[in-house]
Design a protein around this nucleic acid. Structure first.
Lengths: 184, 184
DNA sequence: TTTATTCGGAAACAATCATTCCCTATTATC
DNA sequence: GATAATAGGGAATGATTGTTTCCGAATAAA
């Protein structure tokens, strides 16, 4: 079932909610229509399950990318680098389900809107925490405003996914080098 | 007709392409179905016209916001401030049609994908130009990498629209103050 | 072996969608 | 002033959508 959900994540990420018919869904999940409706109440429930699975997987990836780093500054750099990589290539073209949901559904679906906001705030809190870690270990200056910088970095990460979907090339090393000036 | 297109822009921006039925469209444009199909070939053509109108209006707003500034650095600050303002409140909740198109249609609609890429590259070029102006007038250091910084700033502007749609509050002054560190 | 139950698959359902057709009203032309 | 031509409005149409239901196969229990 989890492997079927993974395939649902791919379809929803690439086409969005409304453009994905349950025909697309069953083809991708290798399940018949009846099976899908036996496992989920309706299309919306499939989407919610796919969304939560996507969030769980991405969170795991992000945390482990940040874990590799001697101090707060290095962990933050690795997090940003990871975001750039995920925004590129085939995964970049597929798109981020959080960004897609924010843009396509936040205005019309309060349930999804709440999930998206919660996810962004969690990420922002994680980044702010890394900044404070860096300030504690001396790798980031004290005068850096942790919360404001974290919110701007969230904008950068979400913007990366938008730009990546538009097929603009992204040079991770150079882009991150510029972004790290925010920690000066 | 332009006023009808403006209303189409609002609907498409808020709900996206697929979630906007031509019933929604006719209601918003105050036109009957037949009239819409007399003025445009199909729904896709309405969207393309709305997209181009949106781009033209926003470009005008952005350029005039940037025009108010004594030097390159100030013009860039005003541009960023303008983006934050447009990403907030009712307009922020409505969303940006370029971001929406990039996320919802870039993967499946080559025509829209090309328009989106062109728009992003135009914006990026404009920002890079402002940076170079600042370097010429002495308000921005020479060692700033104009192209890389411009691409990152595009990510910021697009990310602002995503975050604004998710209803997270944005403090223009503080956010832009942090972002201006990219020009140090 | 037989019965019961769960699971997957395909056809059928109602609703909604984009699109077309036709009618009316208004303008312009002779 | 009569007529042609055009623009706008709304009902009909065919395709597609999400959803449900029914049926067969496979597995487990007796």
């Amino acid at each position: 079932m989890d492997t079927a959900l993974d395939r649902a994540v791919r379809v929803f990420s690439e086409r969005g909610y409304h453009a994905t018919s349950i025909g697309d869904l069953t083809a991708a999940m290798r399940l018949a229509t009846g099976s899908v409706y036996k496992a989920f109440r309706d299309k919306h429930a499939v989407f919610l399950a796919a969304f939560e699975r996507y969030v769980a997987l991405r969170q795991e990836e992000t945390r482990s990318a940040a874990a590799q780093g001697a101090n707060g500054r290095e962990r933050l750099r690795n997090l940003l680098l990871s975001y750039v990589e995920h925004s590129q290539g085939s995964e970049g073209r597929r798109g981020c389900l959080v960004v897609g949901s924010a843009v396509e559904l936040s205005a019309v679906d309060p349930v999804v809107a709440a999930l998206v906001s919660a996810r962004l705030e969690t990420n922002e809190g994680f980044i702010a925490g890394l900044i404070r870690e860096g300030q504690a270990d001396g790798s980031i200056p004290r005068h850096v405003a942790a919360d404001d910088t974290a919110r701007l970095m969230i904008c950068i990460t979400q913007g990366l996914r938008v730009v990546g979907k538009a097929r603009l090339s992204l040079d991770g090393k150079r882009l991150v080098a510029v972004a790290m000036k925010l920690l000066a």
